[in-house]
Nucleic acid binder design. Structure first.
Lengths: 77, 77
DNA sequence: ATGTGACTTGGAGTCCGTT
DNA sequence: AAACGGACTCCAAGTCACA
């Protein structure tokens, strides 16, 4: 299933941005008003996250939500 | 609820891109492997769409999924 | 060709833990 | 601090009939 790769890609991007900000999953969860264990599973690409939660995490990381869907290097898709 | 505005914004963006391509909701649904009425409700901002479906629609419209989260004018968020 | 209300069900999302 | 599991609630997914 190629679909799962999208989720893994997204999760990696979140983790990357979170770590560069020196935040724990717990702290990010608070900021995004989401659960601690949920953030973890999202970063591992186990969850098919919905749009409002994408937006919440983006807000917590202080980036545009569109930026969470870009790969690290900014290449296509 | 400010959260719903995100969904409306997203739906408008999809509709915009679909219409500039001269596609019907029905045709877009086929291309994205989704249901006709589902596409409709997404465009109206009634659905909190998840990441894999965002990706499917993006593929069908031949754009990067990150582009579906940008406003028409390309401004912040 | 699209809007809409209603419906079932699988999974999103939470909460309790242990490792 | 993070991964992971079980049990739970509730909402997104997906479909339909009809306007």
């Amino acid at each position: 299933m190629d679909e799962r790769a999208v989720l893994v890609e997204f999760g990696c991007r979140v983790r990357e941005l979170r770590e560069t900000r020196g935040l724990s999953q717990e702290r990010l969860a608070e900021l995004a008003h989401l659960h601690r264990t949920y953030i973890g599973s999202v970063e591992r690409g186990e969850r098919n996250i919905s749009l409002v939660n994408i937006h919440r995490i983006a807000r917590a990381l202080d980036v545009a939500s569109s930026e969470l869907l870009m790969k690290s290097d900014g290449s296509k898709n």
